[in-house]
Amino acid sequence: MHGVKRVQYSKEALEAKRQRDQAKLKEYLALTHDILSRKKNNDMCREAFELTTRLLRVNPEFYTVWNYRRQILEIDMIPKSSAADTNDLLAEDLNLTTALLKQHPKVYWIWNHRRWCLEHVPNGPTEEDSNGWRMANWNKELFVVEKMLEADARNFHAWNYRRYVLGTMPVRRSELSELAYTSRKIEANFSNFSAWHQRSKVLTALWESNTVDPVKSKEEEFDLVKNAMYTDPGDQSVWIYHRWLVGDGGEAALLKREINTIQELLNEQPDSKWCMESLVHYKRLLLQKHTTSFQPGEQVNLVESCIGLLQELGALDPARRQRYKESSEHITRLST
C-alpha cells in the first residue's frame, strides 16, 4: 500500500511465523474432524456444543457446524431446560453472533442463526414472562441491527434482517417511524440503495392503509428524489427508486413532467448516462401507452429523440452498444 512502510522480517521470524501458522492449521483441522465425527455419530452432548463455539469463532462461514449447533440445542439442550433457562441459552447464542458480526458483518449464516434464535424464544410460565422475553429480545435485535447499519449503512444483510425483526416484533413499530429512519439514512448518503428499497416497502404499506395521503406523499417523494438526482446524477440507486415512483407510466402528465425535469438535468450534465437512459425509458412508455393523446408531430419527435439518445449512449458506453441498437430498432417499430 502507498505510504505504508514495508517491514523486513528476518529468516528466523518468517520461519517462526510459518510454524505458528502450521500449528494453527493443524489444530483447526483436528477440531473440524472431531466435530464432524461427532455430528456423524449423533453426539448431542454439551462438550460437542462447546466445540462448535470454538470452531465458529475461527470460521463463522462453516454452515454445517451452525446446523449441528442448532441440532444440539433443539434435540438435547432445550428439551432439558426450563423456559427461563432456554431463554438464557438463546440470549447467549445471540451474544455469540453479535461478537462474530463485529468482524464478519456480511456472513449470511450468522444472521440466519440469529433469526433461528428469535424464532425459538419460548413461552414463559406466565404471559408477562413471555411478553417480557420477546420484547427484550426483539428490542435488542433492533438495537444491534441499527448499530450494524451505523457502521455500514449499505449492508443488505442487515437491512434484510431489520425487515424480519420489524415484521415479527410482538408490538409492531409504526411505519412512520421506519419512514423517518430511512430518511435519516438517505440524507446521510443518497447512494444507499438498501435504504431506498426499504423506503419503497414502507411507503407501499402506508399508502395501502391510507395512513398518509398517497397523492401528497408521492409528490414529496418526487421532490426528495429530484434533490438526490441533482446531487449525484451518476448514482444508480436514485434512478431505480425514481422508476419505482413513476411506475408503469399510466399517467401521461406525470411522465411528461418527469421527462422535463430529467431533460433540465441533462442540459447541465450532458454526459449523464442515467439521464439519457431514463429519458429513453419514460419516452418509450409514452409511445407505448399514450399515443392517442399526442399532438400532431409529437410521436415522430419522441421517436427521433429516443434514437438520438440511444446513439449517444452507444458512443458513451460502447460495451452496451448492441443493446442500445436493439432498443432503437424496437422504438422505431413502435412508430410504424
Rank of each mutant, 00 (worst) to 15 (best):
S200T: 06
W274E: 15
G297V: 04
P270K: 08
A195G: 05
L254T: 02
T182K: 11
E251R: 05
V225G: 07
L206M: 08
R284P: 03
T291N: 03
D235P: 00
K283R: 14
S278E: 10
A205D: 11
N192Y: 00
S183D: 15
L265R: 12
R184F: 03
T231N: 13
A205Q: 03
L265S: 09
M229D: 15
M229A: 13
A205N: 07
K273H: 06
L279T: 03
G250M: 07
F193Y: 15
Q236M: 01
N210T: 12
L286S: 04
H281M: 06
T231P: 02
Y230D: 15
L266W: 04
E221G: 15
A195F: 04
E268H: 02
A188C: 10
T211Y: 00
V246C: 04
S183R: 07
W239A: 09
V202T: 14
I259C: 01
L179F: 03
D232N: 15
M229K: 14
D213C: 05
S237C: 05
T261K: 02
R257G: 04
A205V: 08
F222V: 12
Y230V: 06
H281Q: 02
S191F: 01
G234L: 09
K256L: 00
T261N: 07
K185T: 05
L255S: 00
P296D: 01
L203T: 02
P270G: 15
E264F: 05
S217P: 03
G247Y: 10
R184H: 05
A253V: 05
N260P: 01
E277D: 12
K273D: 11
K185L: 13
Q295G: 04
A253F: 01
P270M: 11
D213K: 05
I186N: 12
Y230R: 15
Q288C: 00
Y241W: 14
K273P: 04
L245G: 06
S191I: 09
T291F: 02
V215Y: 12
W239N: 12
V202Y: 06
A180E: 12
S200D: 02
S209F: 08
N189R: 01
G250V: 06
R243D: 08
S191V: 00
Q198R: 00
S191L: 00
S209D: 09
G297N: 09
D235E: 14
Q269E: 10
H281W: 02
C275R: 13
T204S: 02
G247Q: 15
S183F: 03
S194Q: 01
P214F: 05
E264R: 03
W239T: 04
H197V: 08
G247R: 14
H281A: 10
G249C: 11
R243Y: 08
S191R: 06
C275D: 11
S237G: 08
E187D: 02
E220V: 14
R184P: 00
S194H: 09
